[in-house]
C-alpha cells in the first residue's frame, strides 16, 4: 500500500512539473491557463489519492476528496475569470 501510494504521489508530482513547465514555456495567457489548470488538477488528485493510500483511513480519504473537489472548482472558476478578463482586454485593444 505504502509503495503504491508513493508511486501515485510521484506520478502526481510529474503532472505538477509538466504544468509548471507549461506555465513557464507557453507563449500566451490561454495556453498557460490550459497547462496549469489541467495538469495541476490531475496532479493534486493523484497527490490526494497517494496520501489516502498511505494513510489507509476512509475518513481521511473522504476529507482529501473534498479538498480536491474544492480546489478543482476554485481552479476552474479562477481560470474562467482570468481567461474572460484577458479576452475582454484583447477585444478592447482591437
Amino acid at each position: 500500500m505504502t509503495l503504491l501510494g508513493s508511486l501515485v504521489i510521484v506520478a502526481g508530482l510529474f503532472f505538477y512539473l509538466a504544468g509548471t513547465v507549461g506555465m513557464l514555456r507557453f507563449p500566451d495567457v490561454y495556453s498557460r491557463l490550459h497547462a496549469v489548470t489541467k495538469a495541476d488538477n490531475i496532479g493534486l488528485g493523484l497527490l490526494c489519492l497517494g496520501c489516502a493510500l498511505i494513510l489507509r483511513s476512509w475518513t481521511l480519504a473522504a476529507l482529501l476528496a473534498v479538498i480536491w473537489l474544492l480546489a478543482v472548482t476554485a481552479a476552474t472558476v479562477g481560470c474562467h475569470l482570468i481567461a474572460r478578463n484577458r479576452l475582454r482586454q484583447d477585444q478592447g485593444v482591437e
Partner: peptide
C-alpha cells in the same frame, strides 16, 4: 466590476 455577470460566479457562491 468584471466578475459581476458571469455564469460561474453563482455556482461558485452556492458551493463555497
Amino acid at each position: 466590476d468584471a466578475t459581476a455577470h458571469t455564469p460561474v460566479m453563482p455556482v461558485l457562491m452556492r458551493l463555497f
